[in-house]
Design a protein around this nucleic acid. Sequence first.
DNA 1: AATGAATGAGGCTTCATTCAT
DNA 2: TATGAATGAAGCCTCATTCAT
Lengths: 199, 199, 199, 199
Amino acid sequence: MGKIDENKRIKKEALYNTAYTLFTTKGINATAISDIVKNAGVAKGTFYLYFKDKYDIRNKLIVHKTKELLNDALEHMKQEKILGFEEQVIYIIDYVINVLYSDRALSNLISKNLVMGALRSTFLTGEDTDDEIYQTLHLMIAADSHAYNDVDVMLFTIVELAGSAGYNSMHYSEPLPIDEYKPFLYRAIRLIIESHREA
Amino acid sequence: MGKIDENKRIKKEALYNTAYTLFTTKGINATAISDIVKNAGVAKGTFYLYFKDKYDIRNKLIVHKTKELLNDALEHMKQEKILGFEEQVIYIIDYVINVLYSDRALSNLISKNLVMGALRSTFLTGEDTDDEIYQTLHLMIAADSHAYNDVDVMLFTIVELAGSAGYNSMHYSEPLPIDEYKPFLYRAIRLIIESHREA
Amino acid sequence: MGKIDENKRIKKEALYNTAYTLFTTKGINATAISDIVKNAGVAKGTFYLYFKDKYDIRNKLIVHKTKELLNDALEHMKQEKILGFEEQVIYIIDYVINVLYSDRALSNLISKNLVMGALRSTFLTGEDTDDEIYQTLHLMIAADSHAYNDVDVMLFTIVELAGSAGYNSMHYSEPLPIDEYKPFLYRAIRLIIESHREA
Amino acid sequence: MGKIDENKRIKKEALYNTAYTLFTTKGINATAISDIVKNAGVAKGTFYLYFKDKYDIRNKLIVHKTKELLNDALEHMKQEKILGFEEQVIYIIDYVINVLYSDRALSNLISKNLVMGALRSTFLTGEDTDDEIYQTLHLMIAADSHAYNDVDVMLFTIVELAGSAGYNSMHYSEPLPIDEYKPFLYRAIRLIIESHREA
DNA sequence: AATGAATGAGGCTTCATTCAT
DNA sequence: TATGAATGAAGCCTCATTCAT
């Protein structure tokens, strides 16, 4: 049984990896399921054993990659012992921007729309309260020397701004290359944070 | 001759109108060129006389609709005699949000990504300097009682934030319905504007 | 051992029951073997332990259900002490029509073609002479006060007429609903029987 | 234009002919649309220009062939100057049986079920009263020296009996080869007709 | 005897694009 | 200019059957 389950995992993993490569290389529209299975070395039917269609595997990939990225960011933040909510938010966003900037493939997959969708469902929705990332963020806020109003609104605004402006600056260097745009972005974020501080 | 040209215009217009309806109803992926021509009452070959493919007509539609929307906003702003750059920016964004909120079809076509692309190319790029909208914005800034640094960066940041956060709030009522979110959005925008004022 | 055999019987029975439900609900074309095994709660491979394919289990089902139905009819006929071949034939046909009319699922499975195929192989073929139903019919004829010519032809003609006309009347109420059509049908059958009587 | 329409007719005809050959040779289940178009020498897409799917072309074929067959029968009946409704019905049925018996391919296509469906909709349904065949039958009845009750019931009963019993006798020679069975069949039909005569 | 993951042939359907009229 | 029949590549998905466990 261990053998069978191991085999299942391997096939699934092969499909994920191949899909990731193809989606980020050719784009999802230009990627056929035939391409995925051919490159993954499995039969076509096997794909349908694990995924409903092309969009199913894409969504699962995005959620996976996004969570991974955010966890990495939080991990590094802890190691670096960054203190204070404002600094922590800037650190996380900077980390994410840097990773996405250096990994264009990942950035393409987790495009502006999608990363936001994933982020929102991941750490702006309080419902899924056993979500580690969401927990961590709120702990960060609680540990800050200031108190904050409308925390979810604040996080939402920051995420949307950073995601949208960051995406465009990274991809099109407009209005400035990302390195030159960062100071403006981070200043705006700091202002937003300040505006949510309790008097 | 005028007759022939008139006929051309009518067919083209029919294609535009039908495409708009279908794109906003079924989405672009689910809309086939056959659908467009069938509903427009022209032959399939005729489509290729005017457009390269589906995406060509879509792009032309978006540019057209976006410019129309922004021109309307500026027009109303003038009529209302809104003064001061900060108030003017808020007015324009509020106008656009209100129109998109009440016209879901239009909002879907000019989705988050696209509106930004169009906006950027339309009024954040200085190249196309005979662009009326771009001109108007710079006139507004010049007429303000304050002077501003890094004007294009400022406009970019505002547009990205409003576009991205506004889109999500409108469509998903997250983290708040658009009406409740607006005060936060506008406060953030005002802070961004202030941060670009010369000392 | 008895335990194992019991287990086999249970699985087989589950397959039969599920197949019956699905065939009569969705039709055989729309029923996949996967559907059958999934609903029966057995593994796919198990199906092939007992049946060659979809059509194998269907045929076995039909034969089974048809024999059951005819045996029921004969049983009731005996209990009711119906006498005389003509009356007995009418009684059996009436019984079958009534059951099929009230059990549309069964009627769909044992459709016009199939019921005839099954019936013919069941009680018009003399080869399988240890067939109880076939025996019973011939006993009925022998016990009648008249003698008959070309008995198999007579039975065949009656079965075909009743099966085909009855099926259509039941399912489509054409040219009349079954209740209104019955008198015509039974009159025709009586005429056929009479025409086979020895002078 | 005549050229284009002519071409359309040719392609459609090619599809019909090929489908007929394949359906009657390999059966409809074993015939793929690919087979049809390949043999017809047209592109796959062309098939979908004229037919919805495999069953669509089959149904159209059956209706076409059935009407053709019945019209032939009526035509010959007139040429032979057959008089009297009873004789006319026997003549038609005999004609149809003979053709189907000698053309096994046609007989397979227009199988028991289907011929009935087609026949019923063609000449037992009074609604489509501009149907030539239906008209002809009623004229025949009107011209007979006897008057008849429940004409549609009578026709229905005859058609069902002849179709069902004839089909089986032809295909399986059970209970007798068709030539030997005919006398019994025709006797039964005559009895049915007589039973519908007005006193 | 029982399982169910894996297979891959096989069939279906759509649709952008061309081109003769 | 305008037409729309024809094309056929391209992609999707199902499902009967096998076989290692």
